[in-house]
Design a protein around this nucleic acid. Sequence first.
RNA 1: GCGGGUGUAGCUCAGUGGUAGAGCGUCACGUUGCCAACGUGAAUGUCGACGGUUCGAAUCCGUUCACCCGCUCCA
Length: 537
Amino acid sequence: MTESQPETNPSADTGKKSMDEIMALCKRRGFVYPASEIYGGINGFWDYGPLGSQLKKNLRDAWWHDVVMTGCRGKTGPDGNPVRVVPVDTCIIQNPKVWEASGHVGGFNDPMVDCRETKSRYRADHVKCMGEKGDSSGQIYAFIDGDDASFEGALKKLGKYKKKNLTRDEVDICPLTDLSVEELAITVGPDTKEVGTLTEPRAFNLMFKTYIGATATEDDIAYLRPETAQGIFIHFKNVVDTTRVAVPFGIAQTGKSFRNEVTPRNFTFRSREFEQMEIEFFCHPDEAGAWYEFWRDWRMQWWKDLGLEGENLILREHEKDELAHYAKEGAGTSDIEYRFPFTAPGYGELEGIADRTNFDLKQHQDHSKKKMEYHDTTRGEPLPNGQPKGEWYIPHVIEPSAGLDRGVLALLCEAYTPDPERPSKVYMKFHPRIAPIKAAIFPLVNKDGMPDKAMEIYRAVVQRVGAHGFVEYDPKQNIGKRYARMDEAGCPFCFTVDSETLTDGTVTVRDRDTLSQERIPAGDVPGYLAERLGLGS
RNA sequence: GCGGGUGUAGCUCAGUGGUAGAGCGUCACGUUGCCAACGUGAAUGUCGACGGUUCGAAUCCGUUCACCCGCUCCA
């Protein structure tokens, strides 16, 4: 997760949009509510209302359809064949050994110490303390273990305090974690001159902990998954063995993940409970580079096609020094980043595409002692009978990992369009494909048979597009008010029955974005809509 | 985790110790006939929560929770 610093000019829209106003609209129109709001809320958790949950479902469905059901919408992969992706749905809680293998436990359970003055944070087991040998009175000096400059600094400070020159052999050293609270209070931090700036060591485990079974002892500890990816890796062999898939192929999964973020911030952007849409694409090591580029470019195009066009969306290749441990040897890592109002003029990550090499499968092979090698019968020297000899290898993995909630947030921010000219002052310009309300059917006035005709059209439209989003029927209040309401909800098309409908059978179609109106036969409404929603006429 | 700010109706906010308010929105009825029109009426609040001071607290004090901003963190 990066919020990159500005590189492009902050001219475009999102920087000027007010996050407060977007949040107010989300609440007002039922997109997003604070979780547990009537009890005062709960930090880092958000719930979706009726429009929000449908919007989120539409985004997830679009991903599922485009990735899993149609293999990148029928695109041809770098190997010249259709792209194959199959789904799994794995548990949030797994054997804790999964997280030991993935590296999530370990680096995570380390207690940390903060310096209140310099705001630095140290791993508690990396900080050591010194005092004069044979004289335990007075201040204690902390330094970073293994860092000579830090050691010398502490030695110098101690010597100055004791008013004598001390050498390495004249001090006692102990781990910071051995200090009592009282001793910590008279300890000088590694980068300060005053005592008492260090906090007590605290665990910063970003994984949610829970207990399996009712007894809840230390032996029963389990974790809520911090990513869905590991559920895919641990079933790689199962999928290969039970499905007629052959490398290269992908396994996809959507689902909730949990991270005990230090600071949840920025609306739903950094939540403690969030949903991911992850693909692990397995391929031969020699082809990893080509597949990395394929996924990186296609995933970028995918977000663009959902309406995140223009300068607010960028593809950012990671610098070598910020690559994660698993990606160091790979072809690279890219982030698809969106310029949110709260990151502008910087960007926030929507999706990361990483070449993870064979790191994960190898880790699981090492920890589980189960072979993760794949027998590729299309490779190897030709045998006398003309067939290839076959090749055993641990596939490399390209991982396009997207944040569903972040995607929803980006769609909300992108759609939010202030327009002082129209009565609502703002409208939500959702791409019709992901708009939660697909259409509204209005009688111009609530009499003269118009409601009956409108209701008839409403039923036909629900029949045709109801599986993809809401269809509204609203006969109350004046027509302008109803249009305005639909603008705020982001409904792309409104169909209105008027007196002409009763004589010539046509209705008006109001386009949300252009405000233009045209007349079409009432019977054509479902087809007209289906075509514009990408469902075919 | 640190510092700053905010919290009153669905939304935006006024209200500095003495009866809980406005605009918009929502609902009903009437009117209206293509962009939040008009009329009449109605509902809606433990003033974020808990505790204290006071005859009396939305208002003063303490604690706490949530959100926003800046640091920090983001394996």
